[in-house]
């Protein structure tokens, strides 16, 4: 084939650029990781930047995990991530599927109505009043229910559904399958990459939850992880407070950042598996 040479050049360029991306991304990250594993004086001695620490200690991690606040917050965050994402995905799918059906009367109006809420947000206080009226303030649900559906994600899922092979859906319908059945048996397996992607988007959104917690949560026992991590930072920066004792060191701050990020990073490779060319076809045929 004549494309042999082009193939090699393209491969070369692809690998080179990917390596570049890897280098650009990874060096600043090492900054965080090494800072969490090294006494801060060591970091500063190297001009604030250590790539490979010469002294190595897990003290910061031990200290953080020994505090009751972090494991407790981790529990809260895992809960809102798992339950929240489940609710998100169910509701989003239930909206995206009908909206992907061009023949559905009123579809445009609903789409516009959704989009409208992306532009016009109601503001802090009225939203608080509704959250309060529905009894969610200072409960774990305040971090789940008010963000039960993301318009952005509905639109993305709908766009993917738009492009599924209509013949399959049509033939199922002719076979007398109901809409729910078509959705569960045909559409969802076909849409696996987008379902995983949006699941990831939602999960990461919940994992990084801080906004609703600031507004609606006063009970320290319900603080999610990111609030606790942020408080560690604020504590170390407060100068107004003479009494602040045993301030979290930079090492601890960075360790907190790592702890807060690792679980979401670890799940990513599981999702990546489904992002390879051709995997989808295999699943459809089987």
């Amino acid at each position: 084939m004549v494309t042999g040479r082009e193939d090699r050049i393209v491969n070369g360029v692809v690998y080179a650029l990917l390596l570049l991306v890897a280098v650009v991304s990874v060096f600043p990250l090492l900054f965080v990781l090494s800072a969490s594993l090294t006494p801060y004086s060591e970091v500063l001695r190297n001009g604030g930047y250590v790539v490979l620490p010469s002294e190595f200690t897990l003290d910061a991690y031990r200290a953080l995990l020994a505090e009751p606040a972090i494991p407790r917050a981790l529990g809260v965050t895992v809960f809102i991530t798992v339950v929240g994402t489940a609710i998100n995905m169910v509701l989003t799918t239930l909206m995206a599927y009908p909206l992907s059906r061009r023949e559905l009367p009123g579809r445009s109006a609903v789409l516009f109505m959704l989009l409208f809420t992306m532009m016009f947000s109601a503001g802090l206080i009225p939203t608080y009043l509704i959250v309060k009226a529905t009894g969610l303030v200072d409960t774990i649900w305040a971090m789940i229910i008010p963000s039960a559906v993301g318009v952005f994600n509905v639109l993305i899922m709908k766009t993917f559904f738009d492009h599924l092979p209509q013949e399959l859906i049509e033939s199922a319908r002719i076979d007398g399958a109901g809409e729910f059945r078509i959705l569960v048996r045909i559409v969802l397996p076909l849409a696996r990459p987008v379902m995983l992607t949006l699941g990831l988007f939602y999960a990461v959104g919940h994992w990084n939850e801080i906004f609703h917690a600031i507004l609606y949560i006063r009970d320290q026992d319900l603080y999610p992880l990111q609030i606790v991590v942020r408080n560690i930072f604020l504590r170390s920066q407060s100068i107004e407070n003479v009494d602040a004792a045993a301030l979290p060191t930079v090492t601890m701050q960075m360790a907190a950042v790592v702890i807060a990020a690792v679980p979401m990073i670890v799940i990513y490779p599981f999702i990546q598996k489904h992002f390879q060319k051709g995997v989808l076809l295999g699943s459809v045929k089987s």
């Binding site: 407790r72 529990g75 809260v76 895992v78 809960f79 798992v82 339950v83 774990i140 026992d221 799940i267």
Partner: peptide, 21 residues
């Protein structure tokens, strides 16, 4: 398996939250 671990954690955290409250 991962999901199972997650749900175990979740149940744990609910119990914890309940006790705390």
């Amino acid at each position: 398996k991962f999901i199972r671990i997650l749900s175990a954690l979740t149940v744990g955290s609910v119990l914890l939250a309940a006790c705390g409250g």
